[in-house]
């Protein structure tokens, strides 16, 4: 098994081609695609927050296609029950025994569309599965397949009839990103090009799940020097003392930042973290974990990006 980070070339190549492959159906969103893959490599779950029609579903299914992961999609609604997600026990007439029928959560890549539409009960069933990577039914634990990666989406604007995720639940997501509008050139290409759905079937698997698991293992071996950790600590400290946010970042948030920075370094083809990696992921990692003191809402990506401008990188 290849586990040294020093021979990165092959991985860099496959990661690069994965990004390229996905961008065939999602124009001009390389940054977002890399962040999603980064989250996947860091073994975290991804929350995408944006308006409908900006390509959330396309991104999720393209990742599924390119990585060859077993991909399912669940549309969350207000009448959805936990069992609809996790599965239920049913009497098998032939054997006369109850048998567990696996729900849609038993997959490798789950797209939980509009997660805030469902009741808190269902939300928490999903979040439990995300955290524990297993499902308990009738006192029996059923392990979920590995890797297990959840991409949840929510619409932050039309909030009528939704159940917004509380902070503690948001914390389960390693990253929160938004898609944003494409720029005009990309927009033109989207408009003039063929239907992405048709293109989707043409996508090739460039990163199989075995390779993905190996990459996930490599993430923890990416070197993180004291200097970089100093910077991470300054960032964490800044959220706690600056007065910009209601609460500072928790140690778990800090660990998330380090883990994502490592994954980003790996995607960038390095076996060591630089402050550039930290800066690349800090907004998606910190954003949903911070509450803006002045507005009382979660810090937007832009706000975090703006905020880190005041934190010394080199501290010399």
């Amino acid at each position: 098994m290849l586990s040294t980070v020093d021979s990165l070339d092959s991985f860099e190549e496959s990661l690069g081609s994965a990004v390229a492959e996905i961008s065939r159906v999602l124009y001009g969103k390389n940054e977002t695609i890399k962040l999603s893959l980064c989250c996947l490599l860091a073994r975290g779950h991804l929350l995408i927050e944006d308006l409908p029609g900006l390509g959330k579903t396309t991104l999720a299914s393209a990742i599924g296609k390119v990585t060859g992961l077993d991909y399912r999609r669940v549309q969350f609604t207000s009448d959805m029950l936990p069992a609809d997600l996790t599965g239920f026990s049913m009497l098998d007439k032939e054997s006369g025994k109850f048998e567990f029928q696996q729900g849609p959560v038993f997959c490798q890549l789950l797209l939980a569309d509009e997660i805030n539409r469902s009741s808190p009960k269902t939300q928490s069933a999903l979040l439990e599965a995300m955290e524990e990577r297993q499902v308990s039914a009738d006192g029996i634990s059923h392990s979920l397949p590995a890797p297990f990666f959840v991409i949840a989406t929510q619409n932050p604007f039309s909030l009528a009839g939704t159940f917004p995720l509380p902070e503690s639940q948001l914390d389960r997501f390693l990253m929160r990103i938004s898609m944003g509008y494409p720029d005009s050139a990309d927009e033109r290409q989207i408009l003039s090009g063929s239907d992405p759905r048709a293109l989707m079937d043409q996508l090739n698997i460039v990163l199989d799940s075995a390779e993905l698991v190996r990459l996930q293992e490599l993430v923890s071996q990416v070197k993180t020097s004291e200097v970089v950790l100093d910077y991470v600590q300054r960032l964490i400290e800044g959220t706690r003392v600056g007065g910009d946010f209601v609460h500072g970042i928790s140690p778990r948030g800090g660990m998330a930042l380090v883990q994502c920075s490592r994954a980003w370094a790996l995607i960038s083809g390095r076996n060591y973290v630089t402050p550039d990696d930290v800066q690349a992921v800090v907004a998606p990692v910190f954003g949903h974990r911070l509450t803006n003191r002045s507005s009382g809402s979660q810090a937007s990506l832009e706000m975090v990006k703006e905020w880190i401008q005041q934190v010394d990188v080199l501290a010399s």
Binding site: D276, Q279, I308, V313
Partner: peptide, 9 residues
Amino acid sequence: IMPAMTLQD
């Protein structure tokens, strides 16, 4: 050199 500038910046 601004505080948030990395070596690459």
